[in-house]
Simulated scan of single mutants.
Amino acid sequence: MRRRNFLRVTVVGATAAAFGGASWREAFAATAQPGPSPYGELLAADANNVMLPAGFGSRVVARTGSRVAGTGYLWHPAPDGGACFADGSGWIYTSNSEVPLVGGCSAIRFDATGQITGAYRTLSGTNVNCAGGATPWQTWLSCEEVEWGRVFETDPFGANGATARSAMGRFKHEACAADPDHGFVYMTEDVSDGCFYRFAPATWGNLASGTLEVLCGANEATSGPVTWRRVPDPDGFPVVTRNQVSGAKRFNGGEGCYYAGGTCWFTTKGDNRVWAYNAATSTIDLAYDDSLVIGTPPLTGVDNVTGTAGGDLFVAEDGGDMEICIITRDGVVAPFLRVLGQGGSEITGPAFSPDGSRLYFSSQRGTTGNVLGGITYEITGPFRT
């Protein structure tokens, strides 16, 4: 008989402070459960076929193969992971392209009013760039989701060329998240027997060299202490990285990765889970598991994840109901938005503007169901802080 309660998330101290004093320990005394959204029910779809709560609106900012509004730049195919960066009084949204051989990523520049002022390519000639992560020093780590894939450090401002960061390991990379509090970059691996990694740069802010480690623990454990062991050969050849360390804990299809205030949240699509790694205590726990939901799970096909300064997580679906769901700081799971008429696609790249007032994301394959149908959206409204 499956457990439905008492899956603890030991997330306290710095995390609670970072999230406006909210106590995640109390919120996830049991794994997050369905409940009313703080934003209310979803209304009928708008002109862009996006269902949103009252007070919110959507805008299409880019379509694959079409020029980004006000620019001559053709938006890339299969938009995937993304992030926002402050740019003076405006901001930049960067987005990966999950296609073979040309891959890479692009960026859209916005002014303080949200007007698009530019769009450009920041990485080219790479392979199946899926997700990634932003660094505190304002670069974007674009990850190749292929065996022996690399991490590329890119400049979202378009001034500097991209650099492969091979010391971070060669494996089927998905997402990563920088932890400036402890000096690590965490990384997920998108295979059914994948691992969870961390990279410790020799010098924080310089990813050219450092130590790659893999999380170790019992495969059946969903909570408790874990350890880290060094990966002997980050090149992953002839023995792939995930098979080099005895005792490495396996995760079923690692996806999104997001760090805030002492906790790294990451998702696994094979079992529809959201995990929480507490960096201070070196423990893991479950924040969400659809098999432990009482009633119908509102969140399935878990994928990319991001969060707000107020302590809410926003989790995108690969399939499911084509939704972005919220997991509130009080442990409630509910739909925040739903895209209609795009059942052959997935939601990718959720990221908030620096002031938290706008949410960007993509439907990777749009209405066509193929990589040439990508649509990138902006959501505005009264996001809570």
Rank of each mutant, 00 (worst) to 15 (best):
S89H: 10
G183L: 14
T117C: 05
G72E: 12
K249Y: 09
R250I: 03
E317P: 00
A17R: 15
W75E: 03
G21R: 03
W75Q: 01
G374E: 07
R250P: 04
T296M: 12
A47P: 03
W228K: 07
A351K: 04
V99Y: 05
P335I: 02
D312F: 00
N160T: 12
D312I: 01
F266W: 09
T15A: 14
A29Q: 13
A164Q: 10
I324D: 02
P298A: 12
Y197I: 05
S95M: 11
D318W: 03
V315L: 01
G374F: 05
G205H: 12
M187K: 15
A86C: 04
G262P: 05
N96I: 02
R67F: 11
E174D: 13
D235E: 13
S124R: 12
W228H: 04
A29E: 09
A131M: 10
A83F: 02
F56Y: 14
V305H: 05
L337F: 08
E189P: 04
A309I: 00
M1Q: 14
F266S: 08
D285S: 15
R25Q: 09
P36K: 15
G307F: 05
N5L: 10
G373W: 06
P234S: 03
R150I: 11
I108V: 15
Q342H: 07
G132N: 07
C325I: 05
A309T: 04
Q33S: 06
N48D: 13
Y360A: 00
A162I: 00
A260S: 15
R67M: 14
Y93T: 01
A260T: 14
R3Q: 13
F28S: 06
M51N: 11
R329E: 04
Y73H: 15
P382Y: 12
R3N: 13
T306N: 09
N49T: 06
G331N: 07
A17V: 13
E41M: 10
Y360C: 02
V305G: 03
L340E: 13
T94P: 00
A30P: 07
G125R: 04
N304A: 08
G183Y: 09
V305N: 02
P232Y: 03
A159I: 08
Y73I: 00
N219S: 08
A44V: 08
L43K: 14
A334V: 09
A29S: 14
S23M: 05
S97F: 01
A45P: 01
F383G: 07
A276V: 04
G236T: 09
D321W: 04
L212E: 06
T308Q: 01
V332S: 02
L215S: 02
A44D: 13
A279N: 09
P238N: 10
G373E: 02
A159D: 12
L337E: 05
A16K: 12
F352V: 00
P77K: 08
A18Y: 13
V11M: 14
T380E: 15
A27R: 07
I294T: 14
D312G: 00
F184N: 11
G21E: 05
F314L: 06
I324N: 03
N48C: 08
V146P: 06
T227P: 00
G70E: 03
E147V: 15
V9K: 07
Y73L: 01
A164K: 02
T211N: 06
R63Q: 14
D181T: 06
F199T: 04
S95T: 12
C325Y: 01
A221W: 07
